[in-house]
């Protein structure tokens, strides 16, 4: 470390020429040493599996010697992809998740934004307490959260259902029409605090001068919130949206847990559940193709959204 520091001060003048010869020398070695802890696992546990899935998705199973003969895989071109695109269950799961995202993501982010803005006003006391409690659900693993909620949804066990019954209401949180929204509710509960925190930390970095200038110009708290705070933290809102789109497309834990108590969640409810069901039936090649298609859709949607918003906001 000290070695690096002294060198840094010494090399100010010939920095340009140094940069050219990155291929060798002690500096390059330092760079490599710092990058390896990231790149090695990144390659081993990210790129290689992704590459493997990609490779698998182009294979098909063949068999010699009849039923219990030997099976082998061979290159099949786009055969697996053709099957994915022809699979009605796949498109149904995409549609379901699309509906989920269109409703759940805006609702969650709107609530997160309101909470972040409230935390940022002098109106709210005991901020630390609210910040922590709002963030707390994020500390609960998704599966545990879904199990907790499933007890609240279950007609046999839920005190909530019992209370509502007392009030003459008969909600069916696990019914065919409601179960998607019950899952959305779990996701919202889990992730709102997390998104709020990202927005809140962006709010914290707004220089006080801006508020002072606005006050002098006669702006109310309301105007400051909508005209200054929200536009300034727009990049964080966009970031949380992208995260949420990715999260939605990868939805698995919540519906998979609720499936234990509701037959209205099929084994192909979300694209990831479909991929899992196909893989558990030993059709790894098809599961790989499904995963690749989900990844491509995720890429297109998140980068498409980034493109669209950055262009419009001129960021």
């Amino acid at each position: 470390m000290t070695d690096l520091a002294t060198r840094a001060t010494r090399v100010v003048a010939p920095a340009r020429s140094r940069r050219r010869q990155l291929g060798g020398g002690p500096r390059a070695r330092t760079v490599v040493a710092f990058l390896i802890p990231f790149f090695l696992p990144f390659v081993l546990f990210y790129l290689v599996p992704v590459g493997y899935a990609l490779w698998q998705s182009f294979l098909v199973v063949r068999r010699t010697g009849g039923q219990y003969g030997t099976s082998y895989t061979t290159f099949g071109g786009f055969e697996q992809y053709t099957q994915v695109f022809q699979n009605a269950e796949f498109w149904a799961s995409i549609g379901r998740i699309g509906l989920f995202g269109i409703v759940q993501v805006p609702v969650m982010l709107f609530v997160a934004l309101i909470m972040a803005l409230l935390l940022d006003t002098p109106l709210l006391k005991v901020k630390a307490f609210f910040r922590v409690t709002a963030f707390m659900p994020y500390a609960v693993p998704g599966v545990i959260a879904a199990i907790m909620w499933s007890y609240l949804y279950s007609p046999q066990l839920s005190p909530v259902v019992d209370l509502l019954k007392g009030a003459g209401l008969h909600p069916d949180f696990l019914g065919a029409g409601a179960v998607l929204w019950s899952a959305a509710n779990v996701s919202t509960w889990l992730w709102t605090g997390y998104n709020m925190l990202i927005m809140f930390s962006a709010l914290q970095s707004i220089p006080q001068e801006l508020y002072e200038a606005a006050k002098i110009d006669g702006a109310s708290n309301w105007t400051i919130a909508w005209r200054i705070k929200v536009p300034v933290i727009a990049p964080s809102i966009i970031l949380t949206t992208v995260f949420s789109i990715i999260g939605t497309l990868q939805l698995y834990a919540e519906p998979a847990v609720l499936r234990q108590i509701s037959s209205n969640i099929s084994s192909t409810f979300t694209p990831n559940m479909l991929a899992y069901a196909v893989a558990s039936g030993n059709n790894y090649q098809q599961a790989a193709a499904i995963s690749v298609v989900i990844a491509v859709i995720t890429f297109v949607l998140s980068f498409g959204f980034l493109r669209l918003t950055t262009k419009r906001a001129g960021l």
Binding site: L47, G51, T64
Partner: peptide, 21 residues
């Protein structure tokens, strides 16, 4: 690019040929 490259590398070592019974 890296993913494509690793796929090529893997291509060399997967899918055993049909072996006899």
């Amino acid at each position: 690019v890296a993913a494509a490259a690793s796929a090529v590398v893997l291509a060399g070592c997967s899918s055993p040929a049909p072996s006899d019974k």
